[in-house]
């Protein structure tokens, strides 16, 4: 260990200013986007982006690879769809039910999975999610192979008609911004710092007196709840909830989005989700199966592109000049 004093060098441009500019441009683009793109496509993209950001809270900031996040995404979609359609709840309450349900599932899965580390953690989450898949396959309320269909979007707060796609888009955008803001708040809080210390060196965090288990579980539940937020909104966007959302392929997809965009970057997953969703849309009409491309992209990313798009940008000369830092 060498002792180095880390003195803050004065930077030419304050990163806060640069980040604010980027944020402003990004938000403006998202607000204007429905004028250029098909709204359902954009809503799908935002749902998956939020899903991937929530997943990244766990993988990128706590160092836990969950292979079972589809359970929370698809589970929340089922809960929201069921409560809105069968119980007649308004959309905001239906989504809340989805979030609560996903958080509860996250508590159970997380409690079991954090008993092991690393690779075992990934396998346990995968197995438990598969168990939930079989539950959904057999349970009454999920309607088996058909799924819950024609879910009404309803009126937000009683007066905003969500069946209008413009209204729905801005609602989804609002949820996305709130979700990402929550994640930003979590990772920039003292709590988030402790999560990062667990990622960097778990033993050290234990020796510093943190009860690592509780922190991991808390991070897991938060990630599951935010995933549930994305899943619940997605059920309203598409007006159905099916088994596709709880399958292991979905867990793989969200990992790919995060990996492609940049693990451990706040907005990387947005880009990853954008690419994957665009690719799926593009290939949806062709005979060629998406899984081949997905698999190849996975392999290439792991071999030569582990920083992801945004991570690469942060690491590049331009990115560093603009004041971004990125740890591999």
């Amino acid at each position: 260990m060498t002792l180095t004093l880390d003195i803050e060098k004065p930077k030419e441009k304050s990163p806060v200013v640069v980040q604010t500019v980027f944020l402003g441009i990004g938000l403006a683009l998202l607000i204007l986007a429905p004028m250029f793109f098909y709204p359902v496509f954009l809503m799908k993209l935002l749902c998956f982006a939020l899903f991937a950001c929530a997943f990244n809270l766990l993988l990128g900031y706590t160092g836990l690879l969950s292979f079972g996040h589809a359970a929370f995404f698809g589970g929340a979609a089922y809960f929201t769809a069921h409560t809105v359609k069968e119980w007649g709840l308004p959309p905001e309450l239906g989504i809340l039910v989805g979030v609560a349900g996903a958080a509860f599932l996250g508590l159970i899965v997380g409690y079991l999975a954090i008993r092991r580390q690393g690779i075992y953690f990934a396998m346990i989450t995968l197995a438990l999610a598969q168990m939930f898949y079989f539950f959904c396959l057999q349970a009454e309320f999920t309607k088996g192979e058909d799924g819950i269909q024609s879910v009404p979007r309803g009126h937000l707060f009683g007066f905003i008609d969500l069946s209008q796609s413009t209204n729905m888009y801005y609602f989804v955008l609002g949820v996305f911004v709130i979700g990402v803001a929550i994640i930003w708040r979590i990772i920039h809080s003292p709590f988030g710092m402790i999560l990062k210390s667990i990622r960097e060196n778990e033993t050290r965090a234990v020796s510093l007196g943190y009860s690592v288990r509780n922190y991991k579980l808390a991070a897991f539940v938060m990630s599951a709840a935010l995933t549930g937020l994305a899943g619940g909104v997605k059920a309203l966007v598409f007006q159905f909830a099916t088994l596709t959302d709880v399958g292991w392929q979905m867990s793989g997809e969200v990992i790919l989005m995060t990996l492609l965009g940049g693990i451990g970057t706040l907005i990387g997953p947005l880009f990853g989700a954008g690419l994957v969703v665009t690719l799926q849309n593009y290939l949806a009409t062709s005979e060629f199966p998406v899984t081949i491309i997905t698999g190849l992209v996975f392999m290439v990313c792991v071999l030569v592109f582990r920083r992801g798009i945004v991570g690469e940008f942060y690491h590049s000369r331009l990115g560093r000049k603009l004041g971004f830092e990125h740890r591999q």
């Binding site: 690879l65 899984t291 081949i292 698999g295 992209v297 392999m299 990313c301």
Partner: peptide, 24 residues
């Protein structure tokens, strides 16, 4: 030399590719 999780992700991609190819 990397985190073992990358091995899992790589072989996951490999599995998807092989399965997708045979399905095709």
């Amino acid at each position: 030399t990397l985190d073992p999780l990358y091995g899992l992700l790589f072989t996951f991609g490999l599995a998807l590719t092989i399965e997708g190819t045979f399905r095709y």
